[in-house]
Design a protein around this nucleic acid. Structure first.
Length: 503
RNA sequence: GGUCGGGUGGCCGAGUGGCUAGGCAGGGCUCUGCAAAAGCUCGUACAGCGGUUCGAAUCCGCUCUCGACCUCCA
């Protein structure tokens, strides 16, 4: 385990609205639960943000030496369309429209989600439970909540009694809401509900005749209320008390608020120690992304460039880098200009990293430029300091760019290797490796074969070109460079010979 | 309307009382057969108006503006 004594990991807890030192319930172990996707459509930018944010946390916690169990659910039942007509189950509607079984829809989009998440280099969660796989457990929770007096049955549905709960508990503490305010805003709306109080929420919902996703229960055929699955599955796999619960800010209310109420109602205590919420994604200058606005971009469209708002394609790593350049609690705005900037920045960083691995240090124990030495050690330390400060990846990347500059300078002989010690050189390489690969999850984008054939061929081509250059045969030399350029291979001539890269 | 969170240089985006964020784009210089890359360097920003302070992008108030959530419901 790394030494945390200098600066402990601090994370922002939505519950307290403060950054807190992270201390796991069981030393050495961390349980984290993150709200995953509802699989009724193509994965889009909105899916990428929490996935990357909590992948980052997962990676960092593991790097710090914790044994982490990361649970991210797949919601595959009973989802309503909220950007179209109200009152329709998203998955059921999609299934009806395409004449498919609901589970065919679920299967298809779960796979799409996994493919996109792999492309973004997110690690597979330890457990990825589905709501449909936990119907029995959810029914048991409903029964327990009824038994504990926190719920009531009404026409085949079961509702959580928020009004009663609020009398003895602070319902709304997570999102800063008050029950009275909620009442005010709901009073004049549809009063034909089975609910006693407008703020009550369904934990079991009776299925209407046309509803195709339905299960038997003590209250008749129906399906579980959507807040329930997360409470049930998180506590099943992480225990009645666990460390971190994450998700998008949009889920704070009502979803996470309801989870708290359910957990208290069922377990007699709150389950979650640290609530973490990533901010949302906007498009083209702060517009929210929505199908109705015509700026809804799926990840696949981003990867291929096939969308009317996109002037080019953007690779998965560009997207990941772009999101990491912002802090996870800030909104991040997508535009072609911003993405192109990110693409270049990403390549600059990765190129520096590749050069680092080719550089060799003679081995002397002290350098003759103490200020360079100091700058390197400082940047390496700051990377950890900034990461520990609520995962401030924007600053971490800035620190890594400081190191990048040193590497380029060393590579171009603008900075002599004699300037820095072996220790500084090694520290720099180690820091870059750990942060880029392990923590930030950035990787070289796969191009061509990695069987050594491409490398060998390029070596040969560049050797031939080098001999042409030695003969001042600029025609041949430039022809080779131009033709390679047409194949998207850039050749750069340096003092120590030429290097090539794709893109 | 209610609750909460934002508005930073050409673009993106850190930063919460005084010290260079960083990336991209642009100008200059160096290197270079040319090109590219890279290094050095320049720009000197903090929505507006007041206030607190020796000193504010950073704290307080007001205004403007953007966004999230706010019946049913994953």
């Amino acid at each position: 385990m790394n030494d945390l004594s200098t600066s402990p990991l601090r994370i922002y807890n939505t519950l307290t609205r403060r950054k807190e030192d992270f201390k796991p319930i069981t030393p050495g172990f961390v349980g984290m639960y993150v709200c995953g996707p509802t699989v009724y459509g193509e994965p889009h930018l909105g899916h990428a943000r929490p996935a990357v944010t909590f992948d980052l946390l997962f990676r960092y916690l593991k790097h710090l030496g914790f044994k982490v169990r990361y649970v991210r659910n797949i919601t595959d039942v009973g989802h309503l369309v909220n950007d179209a007509d109200a009152g329709e189950d998203k998955i059921a509607k999609k299934a009806a429209a395409d004449k498919l079984e609901p589970m065919e829809v679920v299967r298809y989009y779960t796979e799409s989600y996994h493919v996109a998440m792999r492309a973004l280099n997110t690690l597979t969660p330890s457990i990825e439970p589905t709501a449909t796989g936990h119907i029995l457990e959810q029914i048991e929770w409903v029964e327990q909540l009824l038994k504990n007096g926190w719920a009531y049955e009404s026409n085949g549905s079961v509702y959580f009694d928020v009004e009663k709960f609020a009398q003895s508990h602070d319902y709304g503490k997570l999102s800063g809401r008050k029950l009275e305010d909620l009442l005010q805003n709901t009073r004049d709306l549809d009063g034909q509900s089975d609910k006693k109080h407008p703020a009550d929420f369904a934990i079991w919902k009776a299925a209407s005749p046309e509803h195709i996703m339905r299960w038997n229960s003590p209250w008749g055929e129906g399906f579980p209320g959507w807040h329930l699955e997360c409470s049930v599955m998180s506590t099943k796999y992480l225990g009645e008390e666990f460390d971190i619960h994450g998700g998008g800010m949009d889920l704070q209310f009502p979803h996470h608020e309801c989870e708290i109420a359910q957990s208290v109602g069922h377990c007699g205590k709150e389950s979650v120690r640290y609530w973490m919420h990533n901010n949302m994604i906007t498009v083209n200058g702060g517009q929210k992304m929505g199908k109705s606005l015509g700026n809804f971009i799926t990840l696949n469209e981003l990867f291929t460039g096939e969308h009317k708002l996109l002037v080019q394609s953007y690779s998965p790593m560009t997207i990941r880098f772009f999101m990491l350049q912002a802090h996870y609690r800030s909104t991040v705005d997508f535009s072609n200009e911003a993405l192109q900037a990110a693409e270049k920045g990403y390549k600059r960083l990765m190129n520096a990293y590749a050069l680092m691995n080719k550089l060799e240090h003679p081995g002397h124990e002290s350098g003759d430029k103490p200020e360079e030495e100091k700058a390197i050690f400082e940047a390496c330390d700051l990377a950890y300091t900034h990461m520990n400060d609520d995962l401030n990846t924007a600053q971490v990347l800035a620190d890594l760019f400081v190191l990048s500059s040193k590497i380029y300078a060393l590579h171009n002989k603008q900075l002599s290797m004699s300037s820095i010690s072996k220790a500084a050189f090694d520290k720099m390489g180690e820091t870059l490796h750990v942060f880029i690969n392990e923590i930030l999850g950035l990787q070289e984008e796969a191009v061509g074969g990695d069987d050594g054939v491409t490398d060998g061929l390029m070596e040969l081509v560049l050797e031939l070109r080098q001999s042409a250059r030695a003969n001042k045969d600029w025609g041949t030399s430039d022809l080779i460079r131009d033709r390679l350029k047409e194949l998207s291979i850039s050749v750069k001539d340096g003092k120590e010979g030429s290097t090539w890269s794709v893109g």
